[in-house]
Each structure stands twice: as C-alpha cells, then as structure tokens.
Simulated assay, not measured.
Amino acid sequence: MKVLVVHNRYRSEQPSGENNVVDQEVALLAGAGHEVGVFERRSDDIATMSLPRKATVPLRVPWNARARADLTARLHRDRPDVVHIHNTFPLLSPSVLAACTDVGVPAVATLHNYTQICPPGTLYRDGRICGECAGSHPIPAVRHGCYRGSALATVPMAVGLAVNRRRWWSGITRFFCISGAQREILVQGGMPAEKMIVKHNFVADPGTRRHGTGEHVLFLGRLTEEKGVRLLMTAWEACAGELGVPLVIAGAGPMRTEVEQWVASRGDVRYLGLKDPAECRELLARSVAVVAPSTWLEAFGLVVVEAMAAAVPAVAPAHGAFPELVEDGVTGLLHRPHDPASLADCLRRIGSERNHTMGTEARRRYERDFTPAAGLERLLSGYESAIKEG
C-alpha cells in the first residue's frame, strides 16, 4: 500500500505524544513493507521566520493556499493510495483536504483530541470540563480566550473551525478516534457517526517488565492542571506516609516551578524533570503503579498503556478514555474524577497484595489490544475501507 502521511509537527521544546504516535505509525507501516511518504510542516520553523511572515501565520490558520498547492503537487507526483492526516495547525490548515479532493485521493484523519468541536481541542476551561462550543459556533471560545488565555489568539482557531467544519466532515472518508469515549463525545457534538471508527494507539514492547513490587509511584507527563498535578499533590499529602514508597514526578510544563517548590518541602517526593524515552521505560519498570489523575477528558491515555506493557498497574480517573483502558480492580484502580480523597484511597490500595496480579493482568491486556501488530491491523483495515469507499 502507498500512504502519504500529512502532519504539522508540534514544537520540539516540549515532548509531544502526537508526534511520537505519527513517527511510530510511519515506522510500523514501513517495517511491514508499505511505501510511506511524509508531507509535514514544523512549528519550530515559526521562530526562524521574518517578522512580516510571522505576522501572517494566524491569517493562514483557517486556510493556507500555499499548503494546498504544495500538497496537490506532491499528490500528483507520488499518487498514493490514501492520505492520512494528523495535525494541520498552524502551518498546514484544512486546505490540505481540498488538495486531496483536487487529485481524487481518499483521505483519513486521526483525531488526537477534540479540535473538531472545541478550538483548543481540550473541552477544558478554568479548571473544569467545558462543552460550550460543542455542536454550535465557537464564539464562547473567543469570549473566554481559550487558546493561550487570549481572545485574539483564539480567533484564527475559532474561524477555522466554523468555516471548515463541513469541509472536514465531507472531505474525510474515515475518522480514526483513539478511544470509544472520544468517539461518543464527538458524535454528540455533531460529527458523522458513520465515518468514525475506533483505532486505539499502540505501544512498542519496552523489552523490560517490572520484577518485584516496585520502588515508587510514578507520575510521567506534562505538568499542567488538566493532567491532574495539583490534584495529585493534594491527594499525596493525605496518604503519603501510608504507602512506604516515594512519589516520583517526571516531566515539564507550566506548573514546574509550583511542583519544584512543593517537592522541596517534602522528603517523600522526587522531581526528575524531563527524561529521555529509555529513562522513562526504566522508571516505568521500577514503579509500584503509574498515576494519571487527569481532570480533563483524556482522549486516550498513552502512559497507562505504556505501564501495561511494563506489567505495571495504573491509577486513573473514571472518566474520558480511562475506563476502557483500566479495568477497575483488575488492571488498576479508578478514582472519582476531581476527588483528591478518592485518589488518595486508590493510592493506598494500589500497593496491596493484589498489585502483582493487577500488573500481570495489565500486561495481558496490552498483549491482546495494544501491541504494534494489533495497531497495524486496525490501521490497514481503516485504510482499506477508505480506499474501497473512495
């Protein structure tokens, strides 16, 4: 099969799970003998642009004619069987859909978040879940300044959503949702159910698994409120002395200073900053459990599946994608969302005698549903149905 992957890469200054998923899928397809090309733009390039050109970037977020022309030329040259679109913000835009239509190549798109119904893609505002723009015009997002806290910065995204919503729905043959929970939310927001299939992300086997009971509880991710960092700090203060192991936090983000100050006041927490993939795998394999206390509706939960692959159970909230990833009491524990007392209770229980059994069951779930082989099967099935229908 001949596939062209279209993606606007996120800035390299912070790790991007979406970039990693794209790279892993490209490698997976190529390793299986398929011909894979990549058409991409890089957000890092914005920093090197002249000031006049930088100023035009927001104007091209809703529609970038140059990106359309460049992709059209690439499609004429390569003639792929299918185009797989990931992120188009900010340097590609939905104009890439028109390029696929111009050349008559079927297009599929992976929905990594909620940008089809929410300009910033999070369904989260001011520390709470928000669906004001879902199924309607995204005027509230501008009013609240949902992107980077700025109404002006939110306007291009809101305009792009309002102008191109129907274009997405008509121009894409198959939408890949990364969880059933995400699919349900997007369908409720007005997206065409008949075009939307669930294709969970896969995780490569880390080659190492936990042996013994583990040395620490691990938070591995971006340090933001929506990832539940503040919730975790409150819960840890309520139960830390009862666990007998430290909390290890690895990652970076806007809450880094707050986390560092909190860690400095405690002897049972370590903050490690950013770690490379090999170091992350080692941290996972030495964990009693991974905790992912997100307060927003995670569309997937990659760190939970990475923990599964290492035979480590997870503690996560009972909302978003987590209930379909974590079987409560079997492969981990689910806490009440936004509830530090419930999270603290789960942290107390996760180190029980059932911890090893939950880790074993988590690994079995990984082997059944989240291996590269399972991911390749779902990916090719989606491509084939899009090509047949297109």
Results as ranks from 00 to 15, higher is better:
74 R>Q: 15
75 L>K: 06
387 I>A: 13
288 V>A: 14
72 T>G: 12
170 S>W: 04
167 R>K: 13
127 G>W: 01
64 N>S: 11
135 G>K: 08
64 N>R: 08
78 D>V: 10
57 V>S: 09
147 Y>S: 07
237 E>M: 03
63 W>Q: 09
200 H>I: 04
152 L>I: 11
147 Y>I: 08
218 L>I: 08
246 P>V: 14
176 F>N: 12
291 V>Q: 01
301 G>P: 11
93 S>Y: 05
386 A>E: 04
329 G>S: 11
264 A>G: 12
49 M>R: 10
368 R>A: 13
84 H>C: 12
134 A>F: 02
174 R>W: 11
310 A>C: 15
283 L>M: 10
102 D>I: 07
39 F>Q: 13
351 G>T: 01
323 P>H: 03
150 S>W: 13
305 V>D: 06
14 Q>H: 04
142 V>D: 12
186 L>H: 00
382 G>M: 08
257 T>W: 03
112 H>Y: 01
285 A>F: 05
122 T>G: 10
75 L>A: 11
170 S>G: 05
98 A>S: 15
282 E>L: 08
348 R>K: 12
30 A>E: 13
89 F>E: 09
48 T>Y: 03
87 N>C: 10
294 S>H: 04
167 R>P: 06
29 L>T: 12
329 G>R: 11
306 E>R: 03
259 V>R: 02
189 G>H: 00
365 R>T: 11
318 A>F: 07
48 T>C: 08
334 L>E: 10
118 C>A: 04
250 A>Y: 05
106 P>Y: 11
315 V>H: 04
279 E>M: 10
259 V>K: 00
236 W>D: 05
72 T>F: 09
276 D>C: 04
255 M>E: 14
274 L>V: 09
149 G>M: 09
143 R>S: 10
333 L>Q: 04
112 H>Q: 01
23 D>M: 02
196 M>C: 03
15 P>A: 06
90 P>K: 07
164 N>S: 15
73 A>D: 13
138 P>Q: 05
24 Q>A: 15
156 P>A: 15
346 C>W: 11
49 M>H: 03
163 V>H: 08
163 V>P: 03
43 S>G: 01
49 M>D: 03
360 T>L: 07
202 F>H: 14
195 K>V: 00
74 R>G: 07
181 A>G: 06
105 V>I: 13
323 P>R: 03
179 S>Y: 04
375 G>T: 06
69 A>F: 03
240 A>M: 10
298 E>M: 04
245 V>W: 00
385 S>G: 02
239 C>W: 04
373 A>K: 09
285 A>G: 05
308 M>A: 15
262 W>F: 04
204 A>L: 07
194 E>G: 12
293 P>L: 14
252 A>K: 13
142 V>L: 12
270 R>G: 07
6 V>R: 14
258 E>S: 15
365 R>E: 13
120 P>K: 09
225 E>K: 12
299 A>C: 15
123 L>I: 08
